[in-house]
């Protein structure tokens, strides 16, 4: 989930301009814009450090300082409104080598994780990662949960991680949290979490041909009807297929 609301998406402007500094150069931009839109307004064409524009992909990590404020802020450019006097810089990604692992060869315990990421033993609980996280997660708590062999908690705490790497930039122990968390979630998904039995049941039903007739009806629907049906289902209505004779469409 994106952590910030996206009310700035509206196109109406009040005419107020603010000054932001992009790579050290000042630009006058409308105060309603997000950092990302301000960059584009200023004439930059973004080909790196931009992705979904919806706060999910974590590509647009932006580091900035504000006027008369010593604090270093980290946010997603697509989710944060510009403020007067912002000094902005974007980090397209955080350098990190992702180790290769085969999930089937691993056990779900913290030793498996330390095997690939021994640097997590350097965590001193300084919490700099938490202060940097634009998703308002606590990477420190998740890393420490791994140290306690509580992988379930680590997976839950890191569930909303968008892998933007802001934590890894601030970490004095040089941990690449997002890679660590991905391994934790995979291990938990594979070995800890309850298997979704209904999924296996459904696969069996499909393989037994229980939905073949319905599928034929769907394939035979004209495009307009199919669109209507899609909208109805998306609005939460149960699937009700129109009565049709199988095979009539060909």
């Amino acid at each position: 989930m994106p952590s910030k609301d996206t009310t700035t998406e509206k196109n109406e402007t009040t005419g107020n301009l603010v000054t932001v500094y992009i790579m050290g150069k000042p630009y006058e931009v409308p105060s309603e814009l997000t950092i990302m839109k301000a960059q584009e307004y200023a004439g930059y064409r973004l080909i790196r450090g931009v992705g979904c524009r919806g706060g999910f992909c974590g590509a647009c990590t932006t580091i900035y300082r504000k006027r008369e404020d010593y604090k270093l802020y980290i946010d997603l450019a697509c989710q944060t409104k510009v403020e007067d006097g912002m000094y902005l810089v974007q980090i397209p990604f955080v350098p990190a080598e992702k180790p290769q692992w085969n999930l089937e060869d691993l056990e779900a315990n913290s030793d498996s994780i330390i095997h690939f990421f021994p640097e997590i033993t350097r965590c001193v609980s300084c919490n700099a990662c938490t202060q940097a996280c634009p998703q308002n997660l606590s990477p420190m708590r998740a890393i420490q949960a791994i140290r306690r062999n509580d992988l379930k908690m680590a997976a839950d705490l890191s569930f909303d991680c968008v892998s933007c790497g802001a934590c890894s930039v601030r970490c004095p122990a040089e941990i690449t949290h997002y890679h660590v968390f991905q391994l934790v979630r995979r291990l938990v998904g594979r070995y800890v979490q309850k298997r979704a039995e209904h999924t296996a049941e459904r696969v069996k039903e499909i393989e037994a041909g229980e939905y073949d007739a319905d599928m034929d009806i769907l394939v035979g629907l004209p495009e307009e009807e199919l669109k209507e049906l899609f909208v109805r289902i998306r609005e939460g209505n149960p699937l009700q297929l129109p009565e049709r004779e199988v095979g009539k469409h060909d």
Binding site: C123, V124, S125, C126, Q144, R147, R148, P172
Partner: peptide
């Protein structure tokens, strides 16, 4: 609840950051 790693060897330096796990 949610205890942190103590750091194993007590740091003998002036760097308080090394004590944070125990303090938390």
């Amino acid at each position: 609840p949610e205890w942190n790693c103590c750091g194993v060897n007590f740091s003998l330096s002036d760097n308080i950051m090394r004590h944070l796990g125990a303090v938390r």
